[in-house]
């Protein structure tokens, strides 16, 4: 009882802090509208925040699968790409309005993940990771080859629509919803099963957990959400081609954000994505062509120096130390 009483104020502080943050984020576009591009918050800040919020969602999706079940997915951008192409094709070729294309993108990404997962999620450790890398590379080639549908290498142009606040609110809404959803799922029996798979998959299987069902469901859910982000990104960008959509550094962004914040925790990817964007915008904005190089260095550096992430620095050990994955149970 005493412990709970002591922890109450901290929880209260955290909650009210979160609330203030959300209110500020919700009001930001109003500032932008008044400042007419010159104020403290201009359109490009809003654009950049939208990108950040999309990364929050993507990193949370990636972490939901890789951090909670321990299946490290090197090709998650494939599902982002499916969503982007669903929106791109339906809007530019079939003249659909935007929102319904998001639903189609989400469903096709989710369905693809369930189908692909049913095969690849039988693979363990690095074999799964690289099979997903292959899936991603394969989808990129398909997008290049299926020219009548996807526009091939030259890509597709979407009807332009420059309503920055709309994209911002969509991205914000999705990020909040997705993080809240994952936080909820983690506390349910389903979340417990995911953690069980991460800790000891054969053990979970022998205790009655249908591991392939749990893994593919989680995979499908995350992919569904990434598909929506892909659709929004495509419309905001007004142009897609195989290389900018199926961009492997985007998967790396998700992984870096998760590991930087704290792999396997719910808030970790949020902190990591925010920090990554801040670094990118403020610290190395002036070295734009260097940013992917810095990114490679960052990934190497985190793995060597900060494997438990920011959350780990703050003393939270509930996450997943990446050095621990695939390391357990050496002996038979």
């Amino acid at each position: 009882m005493l412990e709970i009483a002591q922890r109450q104020p901290i929880r209260w502080l955290r909650r009210s802090g979160l609330l203030v943050l959300l209110v500020v984020l919700a009001l930001l576009p109003l500032l932008a509208a008044r400042g007419d591009g010159d104020g403290m918050v201009n359109n490009s800040t809003l654009f950049s925040l939208t990108q950040m919020l999309m990364l929050v969602t993507l990193a949370s999706n990636w972490n939901f699968v890789s951090g909670l079940t321990g299946y490290i997915d090197f090709g998650h951008v494939a599902f982002f790409g499916l969503g982007a192409y669903a929106t791109g094709i339906l809007m530019s070729k079939a003249g659909w309005p935007f929102l319904p294309t998001l639903a189609v993108g989400a469903l096709s990404a989710g369905a693809a993940a369930v189908l692909i997962g049913r095969a690849t999620m039988h693979l363990k450790g690095p074999y799964f990771s690289i099979a997903m890398l292959g899936t991603f590379a394969a989808l990129r080639e398909i997008a290049r080859v299926a020219r009548p549908l996807t526009g091939g290498g030259p890509g597709l142009t979407l009807p332009p629509y420059l309503n920055r606040p709309l994209f911002y609110y969509l991205a914000l809404g999705q990020a909040v919803l997705v993080v809240a959803l994952y936080r909820w799922v983690r506390r349910t029996e389903f979340g417990l099963m995911m953690l069980g798979i991460r800790e000891d998959e054969p053990g979970a299987e022998m205790r009655g957990v249908n591991t392939i069902f749990v893994k593919t469901s989680a995979f499908g859910l995350a992919a569904l959400s990434s598909g929506i982000v892909g659709g929004m990104w495509a419309y905001q960008n007004t142009f897609i081609d195989p290389d900018i959509v199926f961009l492997d550094s985007r998967t790396i962004d998700m992984a870096i954000a998760s590991v930087l914040g704290g792999l396997g925790t719910i808030i970790g990817p949020v902190i990591g994505a925010g920090l990554l964007y801040w670094l990118r915008d403020v610290v190395w904005a002036s070295f734009l062509q260097w940013h992917l190089i810095v990114q490679g260095l960052l990934l190497i550096g985190i793995m060597l120096v900060l494997p438990n992430g920011i959350i780990g620095l703050l003393g939270d050990r509930s996450g997943l130390d990446p050095r621990r994955i695939w390391a357990r149970r050496r002996k038979r």
Binding site: L192, M193, L195, G196, E199, A204, G208, V209
Partner: peptide
């Protein structure tokens, strides 16, 4: 084969 990083009660609930 217990789930080492989960609590005792979580281990039970998961089974």
């Amino acid at each position: 084969r217990v789930y080492r990083k989960l609590t005792v009660i979580e281990n039970m609930l998961l089974s």
